[in-house]
Amino acid sequence: MSEDLIEILSKGLAQTIYMVLVTAVISNFLGFLLGITMAITDKGHIWQHLKANKILGTMINIVRSVPEIILIVVLIPVTRIIIGTSLGTTATIVPLTIGVTPYLARVYESALRTVERGKIEAAHAMGANEWQIVFKVIVPEALPAIVRGMTLGMISIIGVTAVAGATGAGGLGDLAIRYGYQRYRTDVLFGTVILIILLVQWVQFLGDFIARSINKKRYKFE
């Protein structure tokens, strides 16, 4: 084990956390909006717009079918326009966000679909409008499913952030390639793997904990 290991790894970890967090905030927000729109514009739902639903669904599928590593390359011009450069951690956030948002949209869409129609219907019968139904019925009722979806999303963001290392994005994935693969630094390679495992474990634990405590409150028996 070399003396610079801790320094290298902690810098990489900080970069990864930075990319993951910024990507997560933006893509969760956008993915949530898209997910809600997909859910409520579907047939028989509170804001049925089949055409819009179809167009949006197709767009989501198209972006989802492009592998992240290709997306990063394809989006270089877009990244340049937004950030000014296509290199480095901040620039990588653009293709990461675009790659992950459609996935999150699908995750949230299916979480929001878990709400029974009867509850929505009851709210309609009470004279609630569409906004009230979304924010007072659908979202709170789906909350445990939303948290679990968010957990899934965070883990896949950690995954694609590591992949983005291949293009010099910085972070743990970058270390694994530059030190581990190109310079045979096995200690760095294993270090990155362990850190990523810990990161994923921690996110999963936190997500499970939150989802479980919501359910415990709602479904506990005295």
Binding site: K119, A125, G127, V137
Partner: peptide, 16 residues
């Protein structure tokens, strides 16, 4: 609708 109450076979209460 606010002046027409409704009750259902499956109750349709909000679990949250």
């Amino acid at each position: 609708r606010k002046k027409i109450g409704m009750i259902f076979q499956q109750f349709n209460l909000l679990d949250s």
